[in-house]
């Protein structure tokens, strides 16, 4: 029991920090660069993303193990997973608009962006590929979400500071953001070898 718990914890830490999706697996970069300009949007995105990540990891695990494996249609996993994510995002968009317009006003715009974030589709695919059980899938999903949120918040705070900096003209905007990410990734290599799964 304790060992299982430890494995869940390690999965969570590995997904959120050590193998951070942005800095070591290069996923979710589009949104990472797209919404890290301002802290406010970064935080909104982080919250929305983490919630959607966990739920869609759970949903796709259920569908994969109780529908796709029995029917032997696992080869359709790409289509089905993207369908699940898109449908879930669409549904929560509608529900949120009806139930909580205030929240929708704040976070709705991020919902629309999420379905083009590759992490959201990568996590169910990795869960299926690694054959994680339900709890493992959940903690992997949560770790990925938190890890992405961490990366996004760090990046937003750095970019807000860089707004004031006299960056050489050709490097303003995107190029310096990429170079910043390169240096953060370099710092993150210090974690290598921390947990080997």
């Amino acid at each position: 029991m304790e060992k299982e718990f430890l494995k869940l914890f390690e999965l969570f830490i590995a997904a959120s920090v050590i193998n951070n999706f942005v800095f070591t697996r290069f996923l979710g970069l589009c949104i990472f660069f797209g919404v890290s300009k301002k802290m406010e949007t970064a935080i909104g995105m982080s919250i929305t993303f983490t919630a959607v990540m966990v739920i869609s990891a759970a949903l796709s695990w259920i569908v994969f193990h109780y529908v796709m494996i029995p029917l032997e249609i696992t080869f359709l996993k790409i289509i089905i997973f993207i369908g699940i994510v898109a449908a879930f995002v669409q549904a929560s968009d509608t529900i949120m608009r009806k139930v909580s317009p205030g929240l929708y006003y704040k976070l709705g715009v991020y919902l629309a962006l999420i379905s083009t974030n590759c992490i959201i589709i990568a996590v169910p695919l990795i869960n299926a590929g690694e054959n994680y059980n339900f709890l493992e899938s959940l903690s992997f999903g949560l770790g990925s979400g938190i890890g992405f949120a961490l990366a996004l918040t760090i990046m937003a705070s750095i970019r807000e500071k860089l707004e004031l900096a006299d960056v050489p003209r050709p490097f303003r905007g995107m190029p310096i953001a990429w170079i910043t990410t390169a240096l953060i990734a370099l710092a993150f290599t210090g974690f290598s070898g921390l947990i080997t799964l």
């Binding site: 070591t24 310096i176 390169a182």
Partner: peptide
């Protein structure tokens, strides 16, 4: 060696973008 690692990838893209911008300017 660093170029085949994540850092190198981000760095190459960043520097290339800057370089293309420089040409453009």
């Amino acid at each position: 060696l660093i170029m085949v690692m994540p850092t190198g990838g981000f760095l190459v893209v960043g520097l290339l973008m800057g370089f293309f911008n420089w040409i453009d300017i």
